[in-house]
Amino acid sequence: MQSRSPIRKCVGCGARRDKIELLRVVNNKGDILVDPGGRTPGRGAYLCPNMDCLDKAVEKNSLKNALKIEISDEIYEQISEEIKHG
Rank of each mutant, 00 (worst) to 15 (best):
G12T: 06
A45D: 12
C10A: 10
A45V: 14
R43L: 12
N50L: 02
N61S: 12
K19S: 12
V25N: 09
I20G: 08
G12K: 03
C10Y: 02
P36C: 08
V25G: 08
R17T: 11
P36M: 07
I20P: 00
S72H: 12
L22K: 00
G12E: 07
C10I: 14
L47S: 00
V58G: 05
P41K: 15
E59W: 04
G44Y: 14
D18R: 07
C48F: 07
D18C: 00
P49A: 02
I69W: 04
R16D: 04
G37L: 11
R24C: 07
A15D: 05
I71N: 13
E70S: 11
M51I: 15
R39L: 14
I71E: 08
V58H: 07
G38L: 08
G42W: 13
I71C: 10
I32W: 06
N65P: 06
C53F: 12
C48L: 12
L33E: 15
A66Y: 05
I71D: 12
M51W: 00
R39C: 09
E59S: 13
G37Y: 05
V26A: 14
N61E: 13
C13N: 05
V25M: 11
R16Q: 11
G38F: 06
N50D: 01
G42T: 04
P49M: 01
E70M: 07
G44K: 12
I20M: 04
R17F: 08
V25K: 04
L33W: 13
D55T: 14
K60G: 05
K19D: 10
G44Q: 09
G37R: 06
K56S: 00
K19T: 10
L47P: 00
G44I: 09
L67W: 01
D18P: 02
L33A: 11
D35I: 05
R43Y: 11
R16V: 02
G44H: 11
V25R: 07
N50R: 03
A57N: 08
K29A: 01
M51D: 03
L63A: 13
K29S: 08
C10H: 05
S62R: 04
E70Y: 10
G38S: 09
A66M: 06
L23P: 04
D55L: 05
I71Q: 13
C48V: 15
D73H: 12
G14V: 12
L33K: 15
K9A: 03
E70K: 10
N61I: 13
D55E: 15
N50Q: 01
A15K: 09
D73E: 15
A57G: 02
G30R: 07
K19P: 05
R43K: 09
C48P: 09
C10V: 14
N61A: 14
I71A: 14
E70C: 00
V58W: 02
D73P: 03
L67H: 01
P36W: 03
K60S: 04
C48W: 06
E59N: 09
N28W: 09
E21R: 03
E21P: 01
V34A: 08
P36T: 04
I71P: 10
N27A: 08
N65C: 09
G42A: 08
T40N: 04
